[in-house]
Computed example of a mutant assay.
Amino acid sequence: MPLHVPPAPAPALRSVLAALGSPTAVREARTPALRSAQGPLSPEHPLPVHVLGIAPGDLAPATRLAAWRFQIRSTERAVAAADTMLTADGWTFSHFFEGPYIASTELALRQAEGMSGPYQPRLLSIPDLYMLALWLHGDPTADASCGAPGPDDVLVPLSPAPPGFAAHRPHRAADLLPVITTRITPGPGPLLGSPAPA
């Protein structure tokens, strides 16, 4: 089933294209693969990046849109990514980067293409666990800039995944989010005057 990739805001795409066309921006990027790429570079697969967090007193995690991320493709593969951020003047280029999440995102998107059901792909960042997941939202027509994972949405941890999470294994959000919540929510700790554990 084809994925329904949401359109990125036009200013975000324009800012990435401008950065790719700027020799200074590419040369100063900490991305050797981008600087040494042969042939034209193009931004593809725009994905909204939502950050998941739990505020003190909240029972459920909340998300906020933090960026739009573009895979930067050379002739045969993605060599880097570009993030954009929302400023007072609208969406603008933030930075280029590379690393294992580039190939991992491509792999997860290919895997998702073979899944049944229509999905809108997004990225879910869980900073407290140093974790990034492909978030397959079950409503392909939803506004990609908002919302939280629904129970039947699918979350696919990307590689490298933190200990205890299998990379590239799809999970229903209803199954994975409680595990994530437990891992990032500190417990009450020992009571004062309690005996020390043996």
Score class of each variant (00 low, 15 high):
L65W: 01
A66F: 03
A66R: 02
A67Y: 08
A67F: 07
A67K: 09
W68T: 03
W68G: 01
Q71M: 09
S74K: 01
T75L: 11
E76M: 08
E76N: 11
R77M: 00
R77P: 00
A78M: 08
A80P: 03
D83R: 04
M85Y: 04
A88C: 07
A88Y: 03
A88E: 13
F93A: 14
H95V: 10
H95S: 14
H95F: 11
F96N: 01
A103W: 04
S104Y: 04
E106G: 12
L107S: 13
L107Y: 13
L107P: 06
A108N: 10
Q111H: 04
E113S: 12
E113K: 13
P118K: 13
Y119R: 09
Y119I: 05
Y119W: 14
P121C: 15
R122K: 10
R122G: 08
R122D: 09
L123M: 07
P127Q: 06
P127V: 07
D128V: 12
D128F: 06
L129A: 15
M131C: 03
L132C: 11
L132H: 11
L132S: 11
L132E: 15
L134I: 03
W135M: 05
H137I: 01
H137A: 14
H137P: 00
G138S: 13
D139A: 06
A142K: 07
A144C: 00
S145V: 10
S145W: 11
A148E: 15
A148C: 10
D152M: 11
L155R: 02
L155A: 05
L155F: 03
P160G: 15
A161V: 07
A161P: 04
P162F: 11
G164H: 04
A166P: 01
A166W: 03
A166L: 10
A167L: 02
H168N: 11
H168V: 07
H171F: 15
H171E: 15
R172F: 09
A174C: 04
D175H: 05
L176V: 00
P178L: 00
V179M: 07
I180F: 03
I180D: 05
I180C: 05
T181E: 13
R183E: 12
R183G: 05
I184W: 10
G187D: 03
P188N: 03
G189R: 07
G189W: 09
P190Y: 05
P190C: 06
